[in-house]
Design a protein around this nucleic acid. Sequence first.
DNA 1: TTGAGCATGTAACACGTTACATGATTTC
DNA 2: GAAATCATGTAACGTGTTACATGCTCAA
Lengths: 178, 178
Amino acid sequence: MSLRHAVLGLIVEVPGCSGYDLLKIFDISLAHVWQATQSQIYGELGKLAADGLIEIASEGPRGRKEYAPTEAGRDELRRWLTETSPRRVTRDEGILRVFFLGSVPHDRARDYLRAQAVEADAGHDELIDLEHSLDWSQDTMAEFGRIALEFGKRYMAMRQEWAEWALTQVEARSQETG
Amino acid sequence: MSLRHAVLGLIVEVPGCSGYDLLKIFDISLAHVWQATQSQIYGELGKLAADGLIEIASEGPRGRKEYAPTEAGRDELRRWLTETSPRRVTRDEGILRVFFLGSVPHDRARDYLRAQAVEADAGHDELIDLEHSLDWSQDTMAEFGRIALEFGKRYMAMRQEWAEWALTQVEARSQETG
DNA sequence: TTGAGCATGTAACACGTTACATGATTTC
DNA sequence: GAAATCATGTAACGTGTTACATGCTCAA
């Protein structure tokens, strides 16, 4: 139930935010960590409110609903963080495809790995831009947000280096076999 | 539809394998790349066969069904690899939690990051064991399997280094604020 | 006044997880 | 003959995606 806790956590960290605000946070700050769609977010807000973990603190123009955590909600967030362990769910289509690159001509495999390197580089740039666009001095998530961002940067750099290394491996093999 | 292509790809690469064999391959070789459950695998095999991308090559004892790809199946695998791009779906509960570590006492946050470092190290060891247990000389996936494995090893190493760096950051901050 | 952006919600479908259910073969 | 392992399948439920549907407010 990570989406539930992602939404709950954001309501705790960003008080007074609405579903619409959350949507932007997911699209920008959490884009590389936990994706969520608009319908998931609104759905989860309704469930969290029904379960008494968050509540509508105020209503604004255009039907805007600003949420705040309840005490039960804060407790649940802490419980999740301290009494449960994250599970590692691994699904990486980019790497999955590598297993099957033997089914396509060598030059196609090389194209693929080159594209992977480019993608990783673009992802790295995206994170640098994000780093510059956020107002860290104001942000309650400043300390741990920076730590998560650093992970993203290292991840993208590693991925790019790996793809470039992989290219050298495939090219060496192409020479051998002709 | 990555699961579909993961199953199809394995039927192409490992001819004569059954659902049961596939299950083991997913649990061992693909554990860090694409998880799948038994019910997903059997379900997908049925759909792939119904769509004419694979077929039952022979039946063994205990109801065992050995599959082989059809020409349409091989074509579809190549089409997937060359004409579509992998999409990056990012969901990492371990990193998600980092965003909310400000909600728990500093020493709990440190415990969490320490556990992350230990987990990454264990994952690295698991991949080393896998590397030693596979018979690379016989394996049709040898070349690209090795490249994927190298990714896993770099990923785990990077993750461990990051968690250890994160710990130093949090510890420095603890000193400052008391 | 019109368009951009704010703001919420639902319905249908696809994908993934857990648990249940069954039975054959081999090995000790 | 009992246990381990091989082997397949389904049902119920939970999560995630896509598309649809609606309406308000503010600024140019």
